[in-house]
Design a protein around this nucleic acid. Sequence first.
DNA 1: GTTAGCACTCTGTGTCTGCGAGTGCTAAAT
DNA 2: ATTTAGCACTCGCAGACACAGAGTGCTAAC
Lengths: 345, 345
Amino acid sequence: MLTDRQLLILKAIVDNYVTNAEPVGSRSISKRDDVTFSPATIRNEMSDLEELGFLEKPHSSAGRIPSQKGYRYYVDHLISPSKLTKNEVSDIQSILANRFDEIEQVIQESAKVLSSLTSYTSIVIGPEVFESRLRQLQLIPISETQAVVIIVTDTGHVENQTVHFPGKLDGSELEKVVNILNEKLRGIPMVQLQEKLSLEISNVLKKYITQYESMIDMLQDVFQRHQHEKVFYGGKTNILSQPEFHDVERVRNILDIFEEDKLVSKLFRSAENGLTIKIGEENHFEPFSDCTIITATYSLDGKHMGTVGILGPTRMEYPRVISIMDYLSKDMTKLLTAWNHRKSE
Amino acid sequence: MLTDRQLLILKAIVDNYVTNAEPVGSRSISKRDDVTFSPATIRNEMSDLEELGFLEKPHSSAGRIPSQKGYRYYVDHLISPSKLTKNEVSDIQSILANRFDEIEQVIQESAKVLSSLTSYTSIVIGPEVFESRLRQLQLIPISETQAVVIIVTDTGHVENQTVHFPGKLDGSELEKVVNILNEKLRGIPMVQLQEKLSLEISNVLKKYITQYESMIDMLQDVFQRHQHEKVFYGGKTNILSQPEFHDVERVRNILDIFEEDKLVSKLFRSAENGLTIKIGEENHFEPFSDCTIITATYSLDGKHMGTVGILGPTRMEYPRVISIMDYLSKDMTKLLTAWNHRKSE
DNA sequence: GTTAGCACTCTGTGTCTGCGAGTGCTAAAT
DNA sequence: ATTTAGCACTCGCAGACACAGAGTGCTAAC
């Protein structure tokens, strides 16, 4: 168990390192008002803290920097959420002020605000498809062998895809198909569409249309494709202003990851509800071994809808970011609930 | 007028600098097989070329590098398109091999191939809306006051947008509106929709529906929004591997530009048909003052459809890139023509 | 007109130096 | 038994310096 003095010193070192990005020496700590003991004492304590694994030395005669374990302890025991400033609160609430038609607009806007407030990179994962349901399906013929499938979900999200058939399309058949599908599938969660289709719908369709098999194949393919979530970014390049990312090779590795939405959504999607903090190696992903990811979930009527995330260096302003994320995710939840009610009025 | 020898030397310097990214000295040129004269002679010629503005010196005792004017002369007079290698040709043709339903897939794929072949960043601007026409318009109610507008163009592109109305929606009215709009607007170029709507349609609509004004406003808004083109990127971070972009601040400036599709499409959209090369300041855009942009247009049945572009340092492999762009843009034109015929079969 | 020769210039690199910030240890002070 | 002052020691870093290498520009010879 750490003594009070050790806790004070550990906290002082993390705080100091987070703001200055430079190894912290015993003397600079002794200058603080809440520190009454001498540099020598601090050195002894620091030495102990290093032995316990909370601190590291970049080289033998430099100050100390927090280790991953140090940050973890700091986050778990040493910080209390900082109070948001007026500006921060009003920036977040400005998202609310804009009129919006689709959830996506809220999400894109949230990502922007989050990145500009924190000056890290923000990643917001959109309403997860497996939590949304089919509201409407449309098949619009655009040529004799092609049609556009349009899927509208109950979150107001619309996906479209062009498909083509081996044979000619029959307008009245298409209409029948659309009617059957809408009747049977409306309100079904997006993830269950494929199963539902093969178990219940295929038999019915068989009776009505000639191109039965290619139609089923096509629908399965469409449902399959639109399983993934959408990823929104804010301040993609913010991370470049952090001194730890002044190496172009490193930067490139990270930016390349942002181009792969699937990977990003895997890394940032949070399993648990609420706030999650993953520091360095805890991400189990080599390029992020000196990054921290903080995620928070937002929901609608208690249903998990998506994740807001922040990517920054392990040397992150934890208290502030945590407070902002907490506030924002709750605000988004509120916003969505209001939207949902307005929508169903 | 430059002498043959000056031309040979200028070409040698550009070629050499493009591959090695280091100032070129007189001795290294004299080693070339096609150079029969001594370093001293070359020095004299270089001195003249510098006076004429084709070359620059980074400092007094370094070799020479091409000036912007030097590159321009090189591009205009000294190069002949390089023959593509088998790999390059087959890479480009692999785009053709994939089955595709929407033009966007071709474009995205082209951007990828282009960036991987050149190792610069590629920007492809999608079918320009003002060249495409409305094929179909749909209004799908999703709640009592909201609907999704879906626009399908003759290029197979689909846009959607959620809209809401102050009052309740009447299903049969909506149907009428959709019918009228489709009848009157089908085949109209996307850019003319707004004009057409206010001049010809609004009177007709007036007769049929109650929420006349908000409907018109809504449609105008929708048509307005979908004027912009889509921008596709390939190898966004490729530019980081160029030695001239090893400064993080610089990199950030450029990457930030990529986040603004409107700006990018303004910078890369080519007015003229065919191949355009803009070197350095010729871009009239400070962050690109040491970049070259090469664009080529692709078309469908003679109609200008969009632009493929490459962004790299002024120190660019011009002959190779030009050949690739030329081949690719022609290939895309062919591909689109084939697609268009298949589509209308 | 061309080229060899040479002085000169500038950069990059390696070495040395001293400085400053920091540690760790020991011995004295509390 | 803590705490602290004192001091030797360790690095890293910036500046000074010399030196090699690459390159130029000029002059004089070919």
